[in-house]
Design a protein around this nucleic acid. Structure first.
Lengths: 182, 182
DNA sequence: TGCATTTATCATGTGGATATGATAAACTCG
DNA sequence: CGAGTTTATCATATCCACATGATAAATGCA
């Protein structure tokens, strides 16, 4: 099956907004790092290759949404506010994109669940599957396996990760970031 | 399951662009009318409750795409260029929204079919179903039954719809369009 | 032919998503 | 405390989807 070879717009319309994509990727990236060491915006932005200042604002929204924790100053940065298997994509996307509230496929003002339009029923099953996907898939599901660990083991049975900083040992701070300060 | 009660944006992001929605609805509306009488922009815009001039431009793009035919002057207007069961949603949407070319869910530049990102496989099956939906659903599938019809019958167990008009009896043509010209 | 009708095209406006740069505020540590 | 680091916030800038209004071009008909 091969859709019409029309001219079509340059940038295909994305399912998730750019900001939502940034948010999910950022949370995944944070989750893939040691939980006891916060990640700075600069590092996240560099890793994702997205604009730093814009990402900063986006991360802040995730903090307000309770997805991330943040701290300022030296040793500041971002950490997960909850374990990765508790963070669904819907939860991460919520501040930017209300996935649950997608309405009539054709934008008909008169289309309701009472009087659905002709496209409604046909689209609904797919639409429902999408909601389920975003509601059930968690950040843990999308994390790359870190270091040693049976490659496909579910994230569940991992040790509690030392209570997310707040008290852990200083841990060296071995010269990450070779950026020369001017 | 109940997504986070976040503030969330005012206008939920639509799956199809507004213009694509206009286009599909317009084509359905044209298809629901007698094939031998062109429909004017004013009538279509009024029926869909969308801005007239903008719709005009959109309809013209459908003409260039071979979905509609148009004529100017008195007795001008728009008609289908092909029978409704030959017009898939993908075909109608193509000039505005390249559905087939949706890329990585998370917008990752490095995500390819060779090296898919962690979200890729999980999303793919849903994504594929959407493509199939738009590639298989036709305008004929979405047309309201014209004239007499059992009011709430589910769409399934309906008789095959008599090869979808194209040759049925003229079916009345009772005084449409009562606009008094000034 | 001349006029009314209707689509085609052009010029421009508006709002939101995305992005940038500068400044303020909070935090750590010598 | 004071200096350096890092997030939080503010003030704009840009681009595109969507929209508006005016004008041009084509068509049918008296």
């Amino acid at each position: 099956m091969q859709f019409a070879g029309s001219p079509s717009p340059d940038t295909p319309r994305m399912f998730l907004s750019g900001t939502t994509q940034y948010a999910i990727r950022a949370v995944i990236h944070v989750a893939e790092h040691a939980a006891d060491e916060p990640l700075r915006v600069d590092d996240i932005a560099a890793a994702l290759d997205v604009p730093r200042n814009y990402l900063s604002k986006t991360l802040h929204q995730l903090v307000r949404a309770g997805v991330l924790k943040s701290g300022r100053g030296p040793r500041g940065g971002f950490q997960l506010a909850e374990p990765p298997d508790a963070l669904t994509l819907a939860r991460v996307a919520a501040p930017f994109d209300d996935l649950a509230n997608r309405q009539c496929l054709l934008g008909r003002a008169t289309c309701t669940s009472r009087r659905p339009c002709s496209a409604h029923g046909r689209w609904e099953s797919i639409s429902t599957q999408m909601l389920t996907f975003f509601g059930h898939t968690t950040i843990a599901d999308l994390m790359a396996e870190i270091a040693e660990r049976p490659s496909t083991a579910p994230v569940h049975d991992r040790p509690p990760a030392a209570s997310l900083r707040t008290s852990g040992p200083p841990r060296g701070r071995t010269a990450r970031r070779a950026r020369a300060a001017p």
